[in-house]
């Protein structure tokens, strides 16, 4: 059982929870994720760790409310407990001094990016971050991102904040302006697909942090499998970060829809209860 000690609402559907997990708070590194489960009958879902406080023994999780489990999780309050939480899982982000790093975040992808740019900045990189979302309300963690970025570019689809346009436009403007040595992209699969296509055009080595369907999260089931460079990989143990130019995003998008019908039915049942 892991107690929730802080809760913050970023936007209508995006929340931050600070959760007691002393062992994870100490051992986690940028890029790691946890698996959580709510109640005896809950499902196991992966969530990337957005930060931690080893002294207080807490980790930060940012959750976008979409389906049954994320609704259950975000309806918990300070003092409530998450039934099961295990981690840190996955491989940590490979951090080194690349030079100039372009970090592109789509929506809640900003949360898992935060510890990565922190580590990159501390390793001596120049960090340029693009925060992209549909509208102003969905731009999250801007102040924290600024702390670890040399420059922050904000893009919104509707132009309600920053520059109007997609993440790829923000990225290309920077790439055309100065030399970028490395790029990291995190966000919805479709956003990562196009962000990866953009950097590929300019031959910029790019990592994408993937969030697929998982059950155990320890390499046991293969629910999270994807194709990278034509080879099957497990996101939970081989990732979650992969060479974005090698990832078959179309297959990944397809596999993310595996339970679409079941999810819709379950969500309707949940909301009617």
């Amino acid at each position: 059982m892991n107690k929730i000690v802080e809760k913050e609402q970023f936007s209508e559907n995006v929340f931050k929870l600070v959760v007691e997990a002393p062992d994870v708070a100490v051992s986690r590194k940028a890029g790691h994720f946890v698996i959580i489960k709510i109640g005896d009958k809950g499902e196991r879902i992966p969530l990337t760790i957005a930060g931690s406080n080893p002294d207080k023994g807490t980790i930060d999780l940012v959750i976008q409310r979409v389906g049954v489990t994320s609704h259950k999780l975000t309806s918990l309050n300070v003092g409530d407990e998450i039934t099961d939480l295990v981690g840190p899982l996955g491989k940590a982000t490979h951090i080194e001094k690349f030079g100039t790093v372009l970090a592109a975040c789509g929506g809640v992808g900003t949360a898992p990016m935060l510890p990565i740019i922190e580590a990159l900045k501390k390793a001596g990189n120049k960090v340029i971050t693009v925060l992209a979302a549909r509208n102003k309300e969905l731009i999250i963690l801007e102040d924290q991102v600024r702390q670890f970025s040399d420059e922050v570019v904000i893009m919104t689809d509707d132009g309600s904040y920053g520059t109007k346009g997609l993440v790829t436009k923000g990225m290309e403007d920077i790439i055309n302006r100065e030399k970028v040595d490395k790029s990291i992209v995190i966000g919805p699969a479709i956003m990562m697909k196009f962000a990866a296509l953009t950097t590929k055009k300019y031959n910029i080595p790019t990592e994408a942090s993937l969030n697929t369907i998982m059950v155990d999260g320890t390499g046991m089931c293969g629910a999270c499998r994807i194709s990278v460079g034509g080879k099957t990989k497990f996101v939970c143990v081989d990732g979650p970060e992969f060479d974005a130019h090698q990832v078959d995003f179309d297959e990944m998008l397809m596999r993310l829809g595996a339970y679409k019908n079941e999810e819709v039915r379950a969500f309707e049942a949940y909301m009617n209860n």
């Binding site: 009958k41 046991m220 089931c221 293969g222 629910a223 596999r255 829809g257």
Partner: peptide
């Protein structure tokens, strides 16, 4: 990697450990 192809570990874990086939459990199974 088509949808609907599972490892036995995934299939059995969903059904046995996660109760996927029971109505009041959250985990789905095809």
């Amino acid at each position: 990697n088509s949808i609907g192809i599972f490892s036995s570990n995934e299939y059995l874990t969903r059904v046995n450990l996660m109760g996927a086939a029971k109505d009041d459990y959250d985990t789905p199974v095809i």
